[in-house]
Design a binder for these strands. Sequence first.
DNA 1: ATTAGCACTCCCTCCGCTTGAGTGCCAATT
DNA 2: AATTGGCACTCAAGCGGAGGGAGTGCTAAT
Lengths: 338, 338
Amino acid sequence: MEARKRAILKAVVQEFTTSAVPVGSQILANRYFLNLSSATIRNELSNLADLGYLVQPHTSAGRIPSDQGYRYFVDFLMETEPLPRPVKVFIEEQVQGAPADGQLFVERVAMVVAAVTHNASVVSAAYGPRARIKHLDLVSLDPQAVLLILLMEGNLLRQQVIEISQPVEQGALSRLAGRILKNVAGKDREEVGSLAERLTPGVENEVLSQVLVLLDHFEQGAETLVVHDGVRNLLKQPEFTDTARLHEVLEILEESRHLSALLRQLIMESDLQVVIGSENLTEQLRSCTVVLTTYGPSGRLKGTLGVVGPTRMQYGQIVARLGAVARAASQRLAEIAS
Amino acid sequence: MEARKRAILKAVVQEFTTSAVPVGSQILANRYFLNLSSATIRNELSNLADLGYLVQPHTSAGRIPSDQGYRYFVDFLMETEPLPRPVKVFIEEQVQGAPADGQLFVERVAMVVAAVTHNASVVSAAYGPRARIKHLDLVSLDPQAVLLILLMEGNLLRQQVIEISQPVEQGALSRLAGRILKNVAGKDREEVGSLAERLTPGVENEVLSQVLVLLDHFEQGAETLVVHDGVRNLLKQPEFTDTARLHEVLEILEESRHLSALLRQLIMESDLQVVIGSENLTEQLRSCTVVLTTYGPSGRLKGTLGVVGPTRMQYGQIVARLGAVARAASQRLAEIAS
DNA sequence: ATTAGCACTCCCTCCGCTTGAGTGCCAATT
DNA sequence: AATTGGCACTCAAGCGGAGGGAGTGCTAAT
């Protein structure tokens, strides 16, 4: 595309993302292209519309970017905005002070993302199929019931009540837990699996197989480790004055099953993903953009962190800020979840 | 108030809560009072309005209940609806199958409340100042840093990184944890506090004082243990077609600090609380009703569970269903968090 | 290739009109 | 004395047309 067309497309996106009003040739000529007349710009706009980058809400209105227009903008024209000092400070303070607890950590990060992007945020805990067991403990509830406590890398803590075939009292349980831990500490799902196969039946094996169940549960059910925040930010956007739109989005956000599926399917591919409007496979998100990136202290451990908002969002700013939060979160997690 | 006035007020509330349209004398005469003329009912409606139980949106409209009208209805006229069989089954299945983990348990309960009341739900974890320590463990991170894991009654699990003054390796840590646990198991904040005072300085005391910090943190920061769900249900209600209203409510729901403060202040007083519209001390909830009740396996351990919705809600149904969830949750918690 | 000029389109807002549901009151009825 | 039918009155909501204005597309001139 010629340079001038690109410049005009860029101007349209920038103008529209801040004003939310379809932008006309006059405004572009006055604010962005002082050396061109509005008529020239009209011709270019018309061309850009023919090419599919812009659309007109109705005949006598200005232009707004199509999904394809936003796509071109994000791929070729967008400049990531430098972080304003206060935003940088806010992110660092909040994330550096985030609790070690995996669940609380995720909630904190979601809060920060929502605050700095002024959109809804979505964050999943750092986990992965090769995550290692960090600690394990057994607590006696009644003679045959035991609470299994499992701490994974990323400081994800889970508990599960398990039944054992013969009564064991707390002292023996603690020793058993210590013995098992020696074998499984630092191991991942697969390694523990092969360990369990080699073990003769007995209480130790019963516990191990439950550990496996819990690990698998972790894996599929990353659902429980996805949180969202900042829905209130969406309410301020004109595209959500119609509550029907918002209802669709909330259906996704409040159903963590859907949400985790969405994240998993998207984040496979690359480190920064911008999914614009109709590019979304999820029906309910067709009028939204989802921006996702990953964070994590290591290659094994990956969490997702993202933004959900109207397709009209300030891409440059949001990508920059999301990246900053991701870096801070990775760093903090390396400290506390080593 | 005379019986007939009460009957008419009751009819107005019932009609309005389902239709969301101001109710006129005609409809009442036709559907509820076949032996009275609409003129008679008009007189009664006029009286009820003078008494402050009803208001008129405008001169030539029907009547809607005022906050005072709803208050009278809830105090004297409401009949708790019997649970439909499928609802009963749903509640029991979902709550019986709720995970042992305190956090996940709360999330499950919030989902159930939202589903059966068709409103937004708010649930806090079962906790109290006299909650007892159930288990405690120490995990070595690096030589001087230790992860303290604390399991409380109600299966609330928290972790905190603590610094110790001299390096201790994992084996010794585990023995130390066992020793401390012997002393603190089954004790509450106060008992652990007096224990710590009697202890000579040393690593054991350092750990104990951190346990106290964590317990205090639990206490004030019940904030982290309040979840909400079902905001999407509110979007279907005509009173929230204006997004400004919804924004106010979301400000409260999404700020868990506010939310926990709200719950704490409300639930002090009685076991079932219905706070209607302007009765709310919280500015942003002035057009909402909050219905709260408590649940818990014991007197020591109390959680809150509630509904936030428009003042026009089906009080009888919601109170009944909330109660059913509370009972199921108490029972389930007694099983798993003994 | 650019631009001034101009007719044209169409949304938006305002205004007045009509409709209809509902009220309040009065006089008649039981 | 309570109830009721009758009736004038009120006001929101829906409809349709007029006017304004922002913006376009086209044409002809530069």
